[in-house]
Design a protein around this nucleic acid. Sequence first.
DNA 1: CGGTATCCCAACCGATACTG
DNA 2: CAGTATCGGTTGGGATACCG
Lengths: 133, 133
Amino acid sequence: MTTRTAAQRRAEVRKSCLERVAACPTNRLLDRMGDKWVGIVIKFLGDGPLRYGELRRSIPAASQKMLTETLRRLERDGLVSRTVVPGAPVGVDYALTPLGRTLLPVLAVVTGWAEENIARIEHAQEEYDARPR
Amino acid sequence: MTTRTAAQRRAEVRKSCLERVAACPTNRLLDRMGDKWVGIVIKFLGDGPLRYGELRRSIPAASQKMLTETLRRLERDGLVSRTVVPGAPVGVDYALTPLGRTLLPVLAVVTGWAEENIARIEHAQEEYDARPR
DNA sequence: CGGTATCCCAACCGATACTG
DNA sequence: CAGTATCGGTTGGGATACCG
């Protein structure tokens, strides 16, 4: 029998919708780009490869844990390359991959919109907050 | 005296860096766009105004709480308008504002990149995960 | 130098129940 | 119909300490 309660059917619909959302390339990209330190890391690497330590000093607000995790995720996605530079002491170079570099124009579009419209957003927020409750 | 310990100086640097990151328009936009339900809500509203109930049925995976919170944040940012439609029972129309509509081309660029490159990302992830640990 | 490992708090988010 | 309120589990992310 395919008899199901209304609650069961709703749960199934919810689940399949959630799966589609999770699988959607746009949502996956927005999710990644929305990670707290991803935008700024890509921005810095856009200017050229950097050592791990240089990245740390460039983004002192990011904890070591978060910086490393961010870089690992980007590496796993094929957007960033990680290269160990032999020597004493050893160094590690991070750089955008060719794929990662194709993201720069996208980020530029986002930055362009943001800088052009941030004042409008702030104005809207002030109006909203000042609104009679 | 301006004497400070090294730890104090590092803490100050971290704090000012954090403030700059939080104030950066690009980061603020990425943060908003990265919210779990923002992309999909904007996508649906891009096709025209929708009643609250229509949005709920369009995105059954989002809980009522999250859908409402998402819409409130977008309304506060001036990206979405909320219009109560009198009647019995009352209805509420949600729509992109003119400002919100200017975000659609940006979202289209993101979607374009994502759909064009999602296969490369998935391939990179498989390679990374299959890599000798 | 470039990381891991661990702990812990805060924010996020869903489920459920209730309301004008 | 379109919410609000509350609770509780899960995740994100920082601090600290330690390691090759």
